[in-house]
């Protein structure tokens, strides 16, 4: 199932996304550690995206739920016309928390795709 949520591109809305991410992670039956990772990851991703958002814009967040697998995409209008810098601490933290991560700048829109799931552990 997909869940959509739209928030102003302002830091004070991060908690709305964190709470939603936690609830979605629980719906996916992710374990506590991964739930916490998802919370932190959406916080980082949101911080990244609002840093490059156009003023007075909104961030759309779409969550995709699957068993033990949560994906979300944050997107907003941006002034960026180059790829999102990936040498920041924020990006480093985000890539450590997420199992899949990519940022796309296209047609004046910045989108950050994040996936947190529980791997088949020890499938060596």
């Amino acid at each position: 199932m997909t869940v959509l949520i739209n928030v102003p591109a302002e830091a004070s809305y991060a908690n709305v996304l964190r709470t939603t991410a936690a609830a979605m992670a629980a719906r996916c039956n992710l374990n506590y550690d991964r739930l916490e990772d998802a919370r932190l990851a959406i916080d980082e991703a949101f911080a990244q995206i609002i840093a490059f958002a156009q003023s007075d814009s909104h961030v759309e967040c779409s969550f995709q739920e699957a068993p033990r697998d949560l994906s979300f995409v944050l997107s907003c209008p941006t002034l960026l016309d180059t790829p999102l810098p990936t040498d920041s601490f924020s990006w480093t933290v985000l890539s450590a928390l997420a199992d899949e991560l990519r940022a796309v700048v296209h047609d004046g829109e910045l989108a950050i795709h994040v996936r947190v799931h529980e791997p088949q552990e020890v499938s060596v």
């Binding site: 992670a25 629980a26 039956n29 992710l30 374990n31 506590y32 550690d33 991964r34 739930l35």
Partner: peptide, 18 residues
Amino acid sequence: AVDQLTQSLGRSPTVPEI
């Protein structure tokens, strides 16, 4: 409960388990 379940299950617990 998270700490205890992590110990007893040997992995991080899910929300339903907590």
